[in-house]
């Protein structure tokens, strides 16, 4: 508001004299002229990432003798004591949660700025 504590009569009359202007299709005309939403570019980026992931997975599968290393790793895991398995699962959960929290804070500060 203005620094003046009492409203000047001219200010009041000016406000009252200003008519409300009906939209009459103005908003629609503005929206028609907006560029295409980023969503299409975002979905294209998602498709590229998915394709790259599938390609990399296929290459890794072929290069590792049909994914033999996964079977070996699972065998090793099954020989670990239960407490070790619990600690491993707990540690992985904490790691994922920390990364998520950092990403959320980064996004929030980006929006605030």
């Amino acid at each position: 508001m203005n620094e003046m504590s009492q409203e000047d009569p001219v200010d009041r009359q000016l406000r009252e004299a200003a008519p409300y202007i009906d939209d009459n299709g103005f908003t629609a005309r503005v929206l028609q002229q907006l560029p295409a939403p980023r969503r299409t570019r975002r979905s294209l980026r998602g498709a590229i990432l998915l394709a790259a992931t599938l390609l990399a997975s296929a290459l890794a599968y072929l290069a590792s003798d049909g994914g033999r290393f996964v079977v070996v790793a699972m065998e090793r895991l099954s020989t670990l004591p239960a407490l070790w398995l619990f600690a491993l699962a707990f540690g992985s959960g904490i790691l994922v949660m920390t990364v998520g929290v950092i990403a959320a804070f980064a996004k929030a500060s980006e929006l605030q700025s």
């Binding site: 202007i21 009906d22 103005f26 908003t27 503005v30 929206l31 907006l34 969503r39």
Partner: peptide, 26 residues
């Protein structure tokens, strides 16, 4: 504004236009 920034939500921007068109045009 946050919706426009995060999701590029053009409906949200349309609402902003509807709210302010009269004063800006005036």
């Amino acid at each position: 504004v946050a919706r426009v920034l995060v999701d590029d939500d053009q409906h949200a921007f349309g609402e902003l236009v509807r709210r302010h068109q009269s004063t800006v045009r005036g």
